[in-house]
């Protein structure tokens, strides 16, 4: 499992609801160790694409390969095995409100490992400490702030040391400093554990700070119009819509880019 080899390959994917096609003919590859950004305007199907990748929604057509296995054609046991390697951070944390933070993080550990109670306890403390929530074990989700809920959600997503972490709008609802800390945490986890990240976001600062691969979904043409390193896209892309997105509409409005890659 070396860095750089393809981990998720999407081929000819069409997605939509019933007869309504949201996006057609998506083809892209996420490599091991990538921080892969799914970007696009509101309503372009970013979250739907993530739902398909994590196995919550069946695509209309096309395949999603994890390694050599086509996820949507595999049998349920195989799907289950693949899904076990994911961690998912939902938009608002999606913590179980009747459980404390410690119980939230411990749930996957109790479910899928044979760790002893004390091992689980120290693992839970470690994960909460990593996201900066040391000492908040006995709090209920309703007793902490939104940003803390999001970080606790991340601790739960990381509980099983997943190969791939999916983030749905990680910085939505966070103040700039917290968002920046979350970005740093993502970079740190990638560097030390080699985790692959798939991040749905339209936060430009985040995109340029962490992303090294991306796909841009265009609402009007209903397909992907660009892919690759977002910094390169900003420098080289000739597609006016992609440029417009990556410069916050700055080029069209003022004739020059307002946001520069950091």
């Amino acid at each position: 499992m070396s860095e750089g080899e393809p981990q998720i390959v999407v081929k000819g994917l069409d997605m939509g609801y019933g007869s309504f096609i949201l996006m057609r003919d998506l083809n892209f590859t996420v490599n091991r160790g990538d921080i892969f950004i799914i970007m696009g305007g509101s309503g372009c199907g970013k979250s739907t694409l993530m739902k398909i990748l994590i196995g919550l929604k069946k695509p209309l057509r096309g395949q999603v390969f994890y390694g050599d296995v086509s996820f949507w054609e595999a049998d349920p046991d195989e799907q289950e095995r693949i899904m076990r390697r994911f961690g998912v951070l939902y938009q608002s944390g999606a913590l179980f409100s009747s459980l404390t933070l410690a119980e939230n993080v411990a749930l996957p550990l109790e479910q899928y490992t044979d760790m002893s109670k004390s091992q689980i306890r120290s693992m839970v403390s470690l994960k909460l400490a990593l996201v900066g929530l040391a000492g908040f074990e006995e709090f209920y989700p309703s007793e902490i702030s939104g940003g803390m809920q999001k970080r606790a959600g991340l601790a739960r997503a990381m509980a099983l040391d997943p190969d791939i972490l999916f983030f749905d709008e990680p910085s939505a609802g966070l103040d700039p400093v917290s968002a920046r800390l979350l970005d740093d945490l993502i970079l740190e986890l990638r560097a030390s554990l080699g985790t692959t990240f798939v991040v749905v976001t339209h936060e430009l600062a985040s995109i340029f700070a962490i992303g090294n691969n991306s796909v841009y979904l265009d609402v009007d043409s209903r397909t992907m119009t660009a892919s690759g390193d977002p910094k390169k896209l900003l420098a080289e892309s000739s597609d006016p819509k992609v440029r417009n997105f990556l410069t916050r509409g700055g080029e069209n409005a003022h004739g020059q880019a307002q946001v520069k890659p950091s």
Partner: peptide, 22 residues
Amino acid sequence: PDGVRRLLALASAVPERKGARR
């Protein structure tokens, strides 16, 4: 290893908030 040290540092980076533990 580097990664281990960095994560250990990260885990102790934010001190436990006083009075948070119940």
